[in-house]
Amino acid sequence: MLGEMVIDGVDVPEDGTARDHAAELLSRVADGDQAAFARLYDLLAPRVFGLILRVLVDRSQSEEVLQEVFLEVWQSAGRFAPNKGQGRSWILTMAHRRAVDRVRASQASATRDVRAGLRDLDVAHDGVAEQVELKVEGQKVAGALSTLPEPQREAIVLAYYGGYSQSEIAVLVGAPLGTIKTRMRDGLSRLRTAMGVTA
Results as ranks from 00 to 15, higher is better:
Glu24Lys: 06
Leu25Trp: 13
Arg79Cys: 02
Trp74Cys: 02
Ala99Trp: 11
Arg112His: 15
His96Gln: 08
Asp101Trp: 06
Arg98His: 09
Asp31Cys: 13
Val114His: 14
Ser27Phe: 05
Ala38Arg: 04
Ala45Met: 08
Phe80Trp: 08
Arg54Lys: 12
Asp33Arg: 08
Ala105Asp: 14
Leu26Pro: 04
Leu66Val: 01
Val65Gly: 06
Asn83Lys: 12
Phe80Ala: 01
Ser89Ile: 00
Gly78Glu: 04
Arg39Cys: 05
Ser62Ile: 05
Ala95Lys: 06
Arg104Tyr: 12
Gln75Gly: 10
Pro82Met: 10
Ala30Tyr: 02
Pro82Ser: 06
Ser62Met: 06
Ala30Gly: 11
Ser106Phe: 02
Asp58Tyr: 06
Ser62Leu: 05
Val65Ala: 11
Ala30Thr: 07
Ala77Tyr: 01
Gln86Phe: 06
Arg97Phe: 09
Leu56Glu: 07
Val69Arg: 01
Glu64Trp: 03
Glu68His: 03
Arg39Ile: 08
Arg59Glu: 15
Leu43Trp: 02
Tyr41Leu: 10
Met94Lys: 14
Val55Gly: 03
Ser89Cys: 00
Ser60Arg: 00
Asp33Asn: 13
Leu71Cys: 04
Glu64Pro: 03
Trp74His: 04
Val55Lys: 00
Ala30His: 07
Glu24Met: 10
His96Lys: 08
Gly78Gln: 03
Leu92Ala: 02
Ala36Arg: 07
Phe37Ile: 00
Lys84Arg: 11
Gly32Val: 12
Ala35Asp: 13
Arg97Gln: 12
Arg47Thr: 03
Leu53Cys: 00
His96Trp: 10
Val103Ser: 09
Arg54Leu: 12
Arg47Ala: 10
Thr111Val: 15
Leu71Phe: 02
Ala23Arg: 11
Arg28Pro: 07
Glu64Phe: 05
Ala99Gly: 12
Phe49Cys: 09
Glu68Cys: 04
Ala35Gln: 12
Arg39Phe: 00
Leu43Ile: 03
His21Leu: 15
Ser89Gly: 05
Gly32Leu: 13
Gly78Pro: 03
Phe70Met: 01
Leu51Tyr: 00
Ala81Trp: 04
Leu26Arg: 05
Arg47Gln: 02
Ala38Ile: 01
Leu56Gln: 07
Ala95Ser: 05
Ala105Gly: 10
Glu68Ser: 07
Leu43Cys: 00
Ile52Asp: 00
Thr111Trp: 13
Val55Phe: 01
Leu56Ile: 08
Arg98Gln: 11
Ser109Lys: 15
Ser109Met: 14
Pro46Met: 03
Arg28Lys: 15
Arg59Asp: 15
Arg28Ser: 11
Asp58Met: 04
Gln86Glu: 07
Ala95Pro: 02
Val57Ala: 11
Ala38Glu: 12
Pro46Lys: 01
Leu25Ser: 13
Trp74Ser: 00
Leu92Ser: 01
Leu26Lys: 08
Ala77Cys: 08
Glu63His: 09
Gly78His: 01
Thr111Met: 14
Arg54Met: 08
Ser62Glu: 03
Glu24Pro: 02
Asp113Glu: 15
Leu51His: 01
Ala105Gln: 13
Arg102Glu: 14
Val48Thr: 07
Asn83Gln: 14
His21Glu: 15
Val103Glu: 10
Val48Trp: 03
Ser76Thr: 11
Ala38Pro: 03
Gln67Phe: 10
Arg59Thr: 12
Val100Asn: 05
Ile91Trp: 06
Ala99Tyr: 10
Lys84Ala: 11
Arg115Cys: 14
Leu25Met: 15
